[in-house]
Each structure stands twice: as C-alpha cells, then as structure tokens.
Design a protein around this nucleic acid. Sequence first.
DNA 1: TAGACGTGGGC
DNA 2: TGCCCAAGTCT
Length: 359
Amino acid sequence: MRDEIPDPQTFGSVLLDWYDDHARKMPWRISPSDRKAGVMPDPYRVWMSEVMLQQTTVAAVKDYFQRFTLRWPTIADLAAAEDPDVMAEWAGLGYYARARNLLKCARVVTSEYGGQFPDTYDALLKLPGIGPYTAAAISSIAFDRPETVLDGNVERVMARMYDIHDPLPGSKPALKSLAGVLTPSVRPGDYAQAVMDLGATICTPKSPACGICPWRSPCLARQNGTAAELPKKTPKAPKPTRHGHVYLAQTIEGAWLLERRPDKGLLGGMLGWPGSDWGDAPAPSPPFEADWNCLGEEVRHTFTHFHLILKIYVAFVPEGFSPQNQMLLVDKHQFDPGDLPTVMAKAFKLCSTTKGLGF
DNA sequence: TAGACGTGGGC
DNA sequence: TGCCCAAGTCT
C-alpha cells in the first residue's frame, strides 16, 4: 500500500499551502505571510509558549502567556525574578515542575549563553524542562531548522497517515521515524506548526474532518476507514481515591496561615494550606492545638493519577503563635487565592462561602 | 521504564 | 457523571 503514497516531499508543500490560509492566530506565533517576509519569532516567546503548552490547551495558555511576557518581557527579566512571584503567576496552570524548570532554564541561558537561546536540538535538549518535543519545536519554530516535532497531534496524524495500529506509547519511535520522513527542508518552522494545527483542527481525536483534510488523498486510515479509531493507546490504570485534611486558619488581624510546599513532589514549590498526608485514612495533623471547626462540605479534586477528597477545618490562630518550618503568615491584604494551586483555591472558596464560622 | 505530575473543557 | 484529551518531562 505504501506505493500509493505520493513522494513524501510533496506532502510538505501541500500542507504549507493549507497552513498559509488556515494558520491559527496565537500571541506567540508569526503569521505565515510575515514569516515569509523574513520576520523571525523571539526565541524567548517561543520557548515560553512551548513550555506552557506542554499537556495544556491553547485556550488555557493564552492569558498566562500574556501575563508572563508583560511582567517579564525578556529572559533576563525572568532570570532575575523571585521564585515565589513566578510560582504565583503560574498558579492554576498545573504541572508546577514546569514553572520551577522555567526559572532554572532562564537562569542557565542568561548566565551560560549570554541570554541567547542555543539554536540546536542537542543544546536545547540539555536545558531544564526541555525534552525531545520542546527542543525540536524551539529549533524549528524559532530558528527554522529542519527538526521533527512529535507531540500528541503529530502522533495521531502519523498513525492515521500510515494506518498504524500498534498502541502508543510503544509505537512512538516508529511514528517519529515516519514523521521525520515527511519533514520538508523548506519552511520547517511553519511546517512543524502546520502539522500540529492540522491535528488540532482537522485530524482531531474524535470525528476527524477527513473530507476537508489537505492530506485526505494519501491518508491510509481514511482509505481504510480506520481514522477515528487511531491512534490506539495502551489502557490506563484506574485512579484510586485518597483522603486528606487541610487546616485554614486566620489571625485575629486576618492574616492566613499558609505553607510553602517542598520543591519535590505534588504541587512542589507552591503555596498551600497546612494539612495531613493524602492517603487511605490519614491521621489528622493540625498546625496548632485549637478547637478546629470541620466544614460540612468536602473538596473533591482529581489529579492525573488519583481522586482526592479533602476535609476542611477552620480555626483562629492563637495569640503569639509563630510559624515554624515552611509555614508563614500572609497578611489579608497580600493574600490572593489566585496565587494558590487550584485544589487549594477550592478549599479557600469553600471556606469563604460557608457562613457562620466567624471569618 | 513506567509512574508521577494539574487542570479545565468536551462529550 | 466520569472519562478522554491537551504543542511532555523527569526520574
């Protein structure tokens, strides 16, 4: 069946023609016409957008990207930022290791590369938070080098183009190889974005719009009627349910008792409420002795690999209490629940909308 | 190397 | 409602 597929290099020009008319507008993207006129993107903005887009939708990223680039317009600005400010700005976007690595990477590029991103795949791959996908994306999009990006979109497009039924992630190397064969030497940066746009808008996970796809003719899955069932994926393990206790306490002046979570592990580096471990039946562990008032409602939240149910307790911080370890008191005028990861913001919201607690 | 690591939207 | 999915990386 392979002999029915046209010369791979012609795929590139077909897709680029489609992209010229259908490229989505994004704050970090140079339009195809501007790009053809010689305008190059700012590698800092390409890097920032690609890190934010890891496992995250374009819609969710847009506002964060605008805020980050407005507040820290250059990589030197970001490298000089305070860690808590960056973590607070990232709050709500998820996968917080990305924010910690964003700062690490900014500081390495500033100190070791004079503030200029390297342009090769191998050099980019060595930087914190930059893996095979992001190294290829920055190298191709920001520097127009012919690297092959392989994200979820490209995996899906390739599995369908070649009607690959082997399940992901095992089939990843084969799909990368097939994607590499199709990568053209002309306009590789626009091509990388074009394949991803194709996957995001036409070759979608469910109900792919094969009828209007620029690659409908050579696509083997469309010929065989298997597009909608590809790519196959190995089944995921079921999520267990864990339980925990969190303690929301305020001083008589209104300051909130929070803790800075350790860098390693879940919600690493973020602010949160003091609390127990999360497990099957965790022991209560209030930050101080008090008459803790348990809220009638619980927080329910689902992470990537488990469900969580949190019991909320509230009390006043006793006079003379001084925070130990990673705990800190945050003045009520400085406290912003938007600085918290979503699960912690949910606990705050539940607390603040429950009446009769004295807060 | 397989599991850890967030969140919100769509169906 | 619950599951799938989104421009993955790290260990």
